[in-house]
């Protein structure tokens, strides 16, 4: 039992990541509100980022910059952090694009609720059944 407890204590970043991931996925899949869905996506991506960054961390390690630390210091692995920088940029662009789409949908339907959009789809479609430029 104590073995399990130590494992949990040592690996808590991963457990938090799993928890966040579950919360995010659940929000994405169940919430009818478009904003909530987007938030869910962001939470889910943060969970992945957390997992990556935690995988590079070493307790007591220092940033791997040459000449700033003493020779026997343990460097953390900078690669996962660098990768997640890219991941964050990607996630920001996805968020920006999704927000733009939400704005367009709000202008067309007057709501950000998927159920109401589904209800109003027919009236909106009937007056532009072919697309207007």
């Amino acid at each position: 039992m104590s073995g399990l407890l130590t494992k949990v204590l040592i690996n808590y970043p991963y457990l938090v990541a799993v928890l966040l991931f579950t919360i995010g996925t659940f929000t994405v899949l169940t919430h009818p509100n478009l904003f909530k869905k987007l938030l869910g996506i962001n939470i889910m991506e943060s969970a992945i980022f957390l997992m990556f960054v935690a995988s590079g961390n070493i307790r007591g390690g220092v940033a791997p910059i040459r000449g700033t630390t003493n020779a026997e210091a343990v460097y953390i692995n900078p690669l996962p952090s660098a990768l997640m920088l890219t991941g964050i940029v990607v996630s920001v662009s996805v968020t920006a694009f999704a927000l733009a789409l939400i704005m367009r949908l709000y202008k067309a339907y007057g709501t950000t609720d998927l159920r109401r959009i589904a209800a109003r789809r027919k009236e909106v479609i009937s007056d532009d059944h072919l697309d207007q430029g």
Binding site: V94, A98, V124, D128
Partner: peptide, 21 residues
């Protein structure tokens, strides 16, 4: 520019981002 397309794109974006995550 037609609301149905924005809707489809949003669904696609959300699910595809889920996939890439």
């Amino acid at each position: 520019r037609y609301p149905r397309a924005a809707e489809a794109a949003f669904t696609y974006l959300i699910l595809a981002t889920l996939g890439s995550a």
